[in-house]
Nucleic acid binder design. Structure first.
Length: 296
DNA sequence: GTGATTTGACCACG
DNA sequence: CGTGGTCAAATCAC
């Protein structure tokens, strides 16, 4: 568990550095941005070093997660469920209540004042939780420093057929096209986003993710990575898919590093070595985002 | 009337 | 024991 704490701490540091970079005005200090970039790189290197050296420990630490999820143990699931966060900037005049729509249909189930935070945290779950058993949740909280920025923490991945049939108003739907995690326009989310977990999908650079579920003792049996659900075809409207025009390239990492190339023109994912081509649908079938920790 | 939101209470975790 | 996360009854909006 120590490893996990360490990794979480590093990830948090990286996120904060990202936030700092976001706050730096491009014209103000290019030197400052360079420094932040260096800090980010240090975090990434540290995470990579950890992932290379401590994979087995992390794997064993993660093992109970799967059991907890399978057993439907909600309390353990809460603690261990895949979690990632991002910052959403809300333009003036829109979404005063918070980042309303990210392409999914959310239902608010709670709000809580958080110690040390100026603004309350809102708790949302997928509207399809009961109809389709979708366990995705998110937490939304205004940033203390900048009320136009919301910290959004997602948990679990969507298993629902989703938001295409949501009850969003047309206005909300329009907002959704400008917000996250479904494709932000790249110019709206600057460089920083390319390093965020949810944004690798827009990057042409290989990104690194780490599967916690690789059983290295078992000959490194690979479990394909599945990113947050919005990026896969069935859940992304055609005209929103960031993959339509080009290939994406992902790099998985366990003790063995390997690459994954998604060609969304053909709908095939190719994985070098022993794995054969599989379709996007198959990939989604196989993978479990809940078991993964991102290192991008 | 139905579905969404609010809010106080409860529970799990550290 | 304090805090964060979830539940569920009451309330609100359409």
């Amino acid at each position: 568990m120590e490893f996990l704490s360490l990794i979480q701490e590093l990830n948090q540091g990286k996120q904060l550095a990202n936030q700092l970079r976001n706050h730096l005005h491009p014209s103000s200090s290019s030197h400052g941005i360079l420094l932040v970039d260096k800090i980010l790189r240090s975090y990434e290197n540290a995470l990579l070093a950890l992932s290379a050296g401590g994979g087995a420990s992390v794997n064993s630490a993660i093992a109970p997660v799967n059991a907890a999820v399978k057993d439907g143990d909600v309390s353990k699931k809460r603690k261990l469920m895949a979690k990632w966060s991002e910052q959403v900037k809300v333009s003036s005049g829109s979404a005063v209540e918070g980042p309303g729509c990210d392409g999914f249909s959310w239902r608010k189930y709670g709000q809580k004042d958080i110690l040390g935070s100026q603004f309350p945290r809102g708790y949302f779950r997928c509207s399809h939780r009961f109809t389709q058993g979708c366990l995705a949740t998110k937490q939304v909280q205004k940033s203390d420093n900048d009320p136009t920025i919301y910290d959004v923490t997602y948990r679990g991945r969507h298993t629902c057929n989703k938001a295409l049939h949501s009850t969003n108003t047309p206005q909300e739907h329009q907002n959704s096209l400008l917000q996250h995690p479904i494709p932000p326009k790249q110019e709206e989310k600057p460089l920083q986003q390319l390093h965020d977990p949810l944004c690798f999908m827009f990057s042409s650079d290989p990104i690194r993710v780490k599967s916690e579920n690789l059983d290295n003792a078992n000959g490194g049996l690979l479990q394909p990575f599945c990113p947050p659900s919005p990026m896969f075809g069935s859940e992304v409207q055609d005209d929103q898919s960031p993959f339509r025009e080009s290939e994406c390239s992902l790099t998985f990492e366990s003790n063995d590093t390997f690459g994954l190339c998604c060609d969304f023109e053909t709908g095939f994912v190719s994985i070098p070595s022993s794995m054969t081509n599989i379709s996007i649908g198959d990939l989604e079938e196989y993978c479990s985002f809940d078991n993964l920790e991102m290192f991008c």
